[in-house]
Design a binder for these strands. Structure first.
Lengths: 325, 325
DNA sequence: GTGAAAGCGCTAACAT
DNA sequence: ATGTTAGCGCTTTCAC
């Protein structure tokens, strides 16, 4: 691999001049600019970003640590992040913690070691990762899920209100024994969606199943509910992957939706109106969530000590057939 | 941020000793090891990976450049990659080229500049990105799609055979005017799936629509087919996202599947048996694809000049209701 | 406008 | 077993 000195020699200038040319400094004689550019092409020179980053002690990479790469919610959000990042001159790399706190810690450590310019994280609930992040000077934005005990910029949807609306919707439709399938304790989305559900019940007995945010978890949770003594007549499922599992379980058992059991899922999906019955969902503004997080990160990098912002975006109920008794 | 010299001073040793301790060299006095570790903790020291990478002139990061982060096929594949990578001591960062050659080129350039230890790429068809990659000494593995004119390690499924099987399946079911919706020219999966389709027709007139591999493309392609003079009685759709679009179009127009129109989609999806009618798909061994690519990359890093391997995995038809006249 | 030289933080020879 | 030293490739004063 040729270095900047090889280029300098080839062009008959100093390394400093090559550097100036490559970084768009205007203070170089046009004739030499041309010679440098020619040499660069001739040698196939590619600046070593590692060396540059070391010298400048900063990088132009953002790490986006998401908790499940297989979840369309996150992938949509990433699009929003990327679009803003690119405009601001950053590249985005994704890290998949897979709802696994240990993996999350590994990626947080890597991002810090690699001196990433900023980090956007959807926490899988690791307080250790959160502490590490908060103890570092790296700009951080929490997205979707609040960082455990973290006073950092945060972009979330109004999970509690959305869950309340979803549950009320089921009550209004005439269901009375409504259960909730939610995610792990300590993950803010899981906890807040549960709280919204509970508050909507207004006294009725809550029936809660905690599981992971995965498809199999949804399947098992639904199976448990169906065979329980106080079998519910409707279920609010607090994320998309679990909803797929729940649907599969209902199909396997031949449970009639919405007649025998009403269903509302969290997160919009492209196939919500292709399944039968079509699926009532709570739609989140995913792309906007990503854009907003990226904007906060840009601002945070510019003003590291500004007061942390918290942005709460609304989510929207999309009533379809699965909840229409 | 404390440096290794701060730790050395705090522990009363030299920087070299700190380095040895942190890198697990066994040649350090246990008592000093303890002092170093204490100092590391006291200062909250975190090694600067940028400096380390520069000095070692290598990194422990792989870049995985995929063409659509929203496509479950890729996200499943990434899981396979990650599991092998982690075991081999690498971290994986994802880059989303979004089926956009320009973005792909940007990410390839970034990965090379950042001296990534290896690259796994699902090409969006950019020959420029391919050339850049081939002209560099970085270990590369192509996945899902062959790299344009690239003699590199490659892991793909047998797209042609799978498409032929899918088309034959429709013929066997009694459909006769079968159309094919496929992806952009120059993307190997699009071209090979088309070829498999054509070869299965055995003389019958092929009806082909080229579009991007996105949902909207599938919708538009199906809309065009439905209103064409020689309206087909079955369609083979060459990827999952386009299939969603096609299904939506069929639902919008009230076309009865499989009676009026038979359908086979490429790529298995979690909701294939939740839609009505359930969807016949071609299932790819996604996780295995990822594992295999990662293994090839590990081997390639170990033996840079070995002969490039090409691994072809089988895909499997999953007949369901959408193709059963 | 240009080059010489220092130094970012680390590791690995080398010397002891 | 440990410290000293050089240098990875680049950018950025500083002096001209």
């Amino acid at each position: 691999m040729p270095t900047i000195y090889d280029v300098a020699r080839e062009a008959g200038v100093s390394a400093a001049t090559v550097s100036r040319v490559l970084n768009g400094r205007l203070t170089v004689d046009p004739e030499r600019v041309a010679r440098v550019l020619t040499a660069v092409r001739a040698l196939g020179y590619r600046p070593n970003a590692v060396a540059r980053n070391l010298r400048r002690s900063r990088t132009t990479l953002w790490a986006v640590i998401i908790s499940d790469i297989g979840n369309p919610f996150f992938t949509a959000t990433v699009r929003g992040i990327e679009d803003v990042a690119q405009q601001a001159g950053y590249s985005v790399v994704l890290c998949n913690s897979d709802e696994n706190p240990a993996k999350e810690e590994t990626y947080v450590a890597a991002a810090l070691s690699e001196q990433m310019a900023g980090i956007i994280i959807a926490s899988s609930g690791s307080t250790k990762a959160a502490r590490t992040l908060l103890g570092s000077p790296v700009p951080v934005v929490a997205i979707d899920r609040e960082l455990p005990r973290g006073a950092v910029d945060t972009v979330v949807v109004d999970n509690e209100a959305a869950a309340r609306a979803a549950t009320r919707h089921l009550l209004d439709a005439g269901y009375s024994r409504i259960a909730c399938v939610t995610g792990p304790e300590g993950v803010s989305t899981a906890d807040l969606r549960l709280r919204g559900y509970t508050s909507a019940l207004a006294g009725a007995e809550p029936v809660v199943v905690r599981t992971d945010f995965r498809e199999q978890g949804g399947y098992d949770a639904m199976a448990g509910l169906l065979s329980s003594a106080a079998r519910p007549d409707a279920v609010f499922v607090a994320n998309n992957l679990m909803t797929v599992g729940a649907l599969r379980c209902l199909a396997d058992r031949g449970v009639e939706v919405p007649g025998e059991l009403g269903l509302v899922g969290f997160d919009e999906t492209p196939w919500a109106d292709l399944v039968r019955p079509s699926l009532t969902t709570v739609a989140q503004p995913t792309y906007e969530l990503g854009r907003m997080a990226a904007r906060l990160l840009v601002d945070r990098i510019a003003a590291p000590s500004a007061h942390p912002a918290k942005v709460v975006l609304p989510a929207e109920l999309r009533p379809r057939r699965s909840s229409a008794r």
